[in-house]
Amino acid sequence: MSDQCLFCGIVAGEVPHTKVSEDETTYAFMDVNPASDGHLLVIPKRHSVDLLEIPPGNLTAVTLTEQRIARTVIEELGAVEVNLLNCCGADVWQTVFHFHLHVVPRYVDKAKDRLVLPWQPRVPGSTGTIAALGSRLLAALD
């Protein structure tokens, strides 16, 4: 664990928070700056800076915990769906450098749901660029 990490401090019980779930590998707690009612974070107990650094076993554990919590959020809070979000790097909004996944419940009632998309998912991209980047990634991953 990192002495400078807010989330490591949460796991250690040194930072006030509202715990939602804990097991041997993962820890989940409510987000203090929620995008919607019930917005929470799932983290590995072992410090990893981001998606590129987290060991595969911890990533799997966090993802499975997130799935279990997402189902519970829908059942218990009346959310209609959830967004799952990870930011990997300061330029893409990562503000705490301890790997974490956001579980953001979504509601029909917008008084409970303040999340809006920062991009337009139905605006098509360049087919040439998509094909070129896809081919490049295919070759690199093969």
Score class of each variant (00 low, 15 high):
4 Q>C: 01
5 C>W: 07
5 C>Y: 05
6 L>W: 09
8 C>P: 08
9 G>L: 09
9 G>R: 03
10 I>T: 03
17 H>P: 02
20 V>M: 06
21 S>F: 15
21 S>Q: 08
23 D>Y: 05
25 T>E: 13
26 T>R: 00
27 Y>C: 03
27 Y>R: 06
29 F>H: 03
32 V>A: 13
34 P>M: 11
34 P>C: 08
35 A>F: 10
35 A>D: 03
39 H>F: 08
40 L>R: 03
42 V>Q: 04
45 K>Y: 01
46 R>T: 15
50 D>H: 09
50 D>L: 08
51 L>T: 08
51 L>W: 00
57 G>M: 10
57 G>A: 12
61 A>K: 11
64 L>D: 06
64 L>R: 14
65 T>P: 09
66 E>H: 11
66 E>W: 12
68 R>H: 11
68 R>W: 01
69 I>T: 04
70 A>N: 07
71 R>G: 12
71 R>S: 12
71 R>W: 02
72 T>K: 14
73 V>E: 10
73 V>K: 06
75 E>V: 04
80 V>E: 13
83 N>R: 09
83 N>G: 08
85 L>R: 01
87 C>N: 15
87 C>Q: 12
88 C>Y: 05
90 A>Q: 12
91 D>H: 01
95 T>N: 07
95 T>R: 01
95 T>Y: 02
96 V>A: 08
97 F>L: 03
97 F>Y: 06
98 H>Y: 04
98 H>D: 03
110 K>H: 09
112 K>W: 00
114 R>W: 12
114 R>N: 13
114 R>T: 11
115 L>N: 06
118 P>H: 05
120 Q>W: 07
122 R>D: 15
124 P>A: 10
127 T>H: 12
127 T>L: 14
129 T>G: 06
133 L>N: 13
133 L>Y: 12
136 R>T: 12
136 R>I: 05
138 L>H: 11
142 D>W: 03
